[in-house]
């Protein structure tokens, strides 16, 4: 209960004492700073990345792209039909009509052939060179932020205290899944099991994989680290993995937003901006142990 005591004294006299018992300092400045740097970088990397993809809207498996043979597993394109031009998306040879969003999109009467629509790319018009400038700038920010976060989280204990899974987490998992499915949220100092899995998965699997597959596409890095592509199954496979991880990060982002809205957006936003978080009154959360901040 140390943290609670400290919280009360820091908050100041203008807030009523009994209420403050539930207000805790949950997110360190390092967590908050890196969180927002990631949010900005990932936003720009996604939209510039989709622009880069538009230059070659196909994904292949292997060392190279098959032109005289077929190793394409995913493609977005446009074709002329009896009903005019249509956009399509092809996954493992199965074709879906995605007119209006993927392949063929734009304002009515001024549609163009482009894989991802202009509202999803930076710049909005086709410009591969600029997208690369934006993408690589934020790649530096993203990777540096990941290193800074890792060091800070090791030093300030965020990693050990909040993210490392415990036996207890495994036991709580079924209950946790049911609670999430019912949109029933417990506001505690600690992350619940699904949160640990989601955040840990992003920090230690998705982001590193994104950086590694990104580097594996660089011809100069291929000279420096030739084993990288051997490990990943070739440059074009690395590019495909890069794309799939992007989809997983987008899925994480959507779930992240859904959870924030469901768990109380004001409280959640306050904790990632100021660090202060309102936990459930002890009557509700007595089962959960409180750990010092």
């Amino acid at each position: 209960m140390q943290s609670v005591a400290r919280s009360q004294s820091t908050v100041g006299p203008d807030t009523a004492a009994p209420k403050d018992a539930t207000l805790i300092y949950r997110q360190s400045r390092w967590t908050r700073l890196t969180h927002w740097l990631w949010a900005i970088s990932l936003f720009f990397m996604l939209l510039s990345g989709l622009q880069i993809f538009n230059a070659r809207p196909q994904l292949y498996i292997g060392k190279e792209s098959g032109f005289a043979y077929n190793n394409t597993i995913f493609a977005i394109g446009a074709e002329n039909t009896a009903n005019g031009p249509r956009g399509y998306t092809e996954i493992f040879g199965k074709r879906f009509d995605t007119t209006g969003v993927l392949g063929w999109s734009g304002p009515a009467g001024r549609e163009t052939s482009r894989a991802f629509p202009s509202w999803a790319t930076i710049p909005s018009y086709y410009d591969l060179g600029t997208a690369r400038v934006v993408h690589f700038f934020f790649a530096w920010i993203l990777s540096t932020t990941l290193v800074v976060w890792l060091v800070a989280s090791l030093v300030n204990g965020h990693l050990r205290r909040d993210l490392v899974p415990r036996i207890d987490d495994l036991r709580r998992l079924p209950r946790d899944i049911i609670d999430h499915a019912k949109f029933k949220f417990h506001h505690t100092r600690e992350y619940n099991t699904l949160q640990k899995m989601a955040y840990g998965g992003v920090m230690f699997v998705l982001l590193p994989l994104m950086i590694i597959t990104g580097l594996a596409m660089s011809p100069s890095m291929n000279a420096a680290l030739p084993f990288l592509n051997d490990l990943l199954g070739g440059r074009q496979t690395a590019r495909t993995i890069h794309f799939v991880v992007m989809l997983l990060l987008v899925a994480f982002f959507i779930i992240h937003m859904v959870m924030i809205f469901a768990a109380g957006p004001i409280n959640e936003l306050r904790s990632i901006i100021t660090g202060w978080y309102r936990t459930d009154p002890p009557a509700h959360g007595s089962k959960t142990p409180q750990r010092g901040a």
Binding site: I52, F53, A55, R56, K63, E64, S65, P219, R235, Q236
Partner: peptide, 12 residues
Amino acid sequence: TRHDCVEGWSCI
């Protein structure tokens, strides 16, 4: 060697 086009494709 593998030729990597800026567009994203490769050819050996």
